[in-house]
Design a protein around this nucleic acid. Structure first.
Lengths: 77, 77
DNA sequence: ATGTGACTAATAGTCCGTT
DNA sequence: AAACGGACTATTAGTCACA
């Protein structure tokens, strides 16, 4: 399991569900657009504190950023 | 929410449930006993990849290391 | 609107020893 | 058996210029 990609894909999916661009998410989260890009493409290995800040900015539980597709319930999708 | 302490307490609890000492867990996980000590006391901020490796060594899902007490079901406890 | 390469400062994680 | 500290190396945080 590639945790970098898992977290990155979850951030990307939830961000898009909220209708945010990387630049808009950059403003609300305080992270740079480039850093968010690196995260979403799975090129970053964030710490647990960083993931928590991302989840907070997205308005979801930190657990949501660690879920695999199979661990998400149908109503999540 | 202090993610360092949350992860640390979960590691400590599950390790103890398995009846492992920090030194034994050090051997199966490949992380040093000193590092595990720092983790469990909430003084470390591990990366998501590290948390995944810890979970694998403990034989649990990585999600189990991110759960708050209130997000754990009764049969977990 | 997103991704990449290069960069510095901070910190993740090591090994040594000690308590 | 668990925690603490110092010195050390590898990796991450976070940015900028640009594609």
């Amino acid at each position: 399991m590639d945790m970098r990609k898992l977290v990155g894909q979850n951030v990307k999916r939830i961000r898009q569900e909220k209708g945010l661009t990387q630049e808009q998410f950059s403003l609300v989260s305080g992270f740079s657009q480039q850093y968010i890009s690196g995260l979403e493409t799975g090129n970053r290995n964030p710490t647990v504190v960083t993931v928590y800040e991302l989840a907070k900015a997205l308005g979801v539980s930190h657990l949501d950023l660690f879920r695999t597709p199979s661990s998400r319930t149908r109503q999540d999708r």
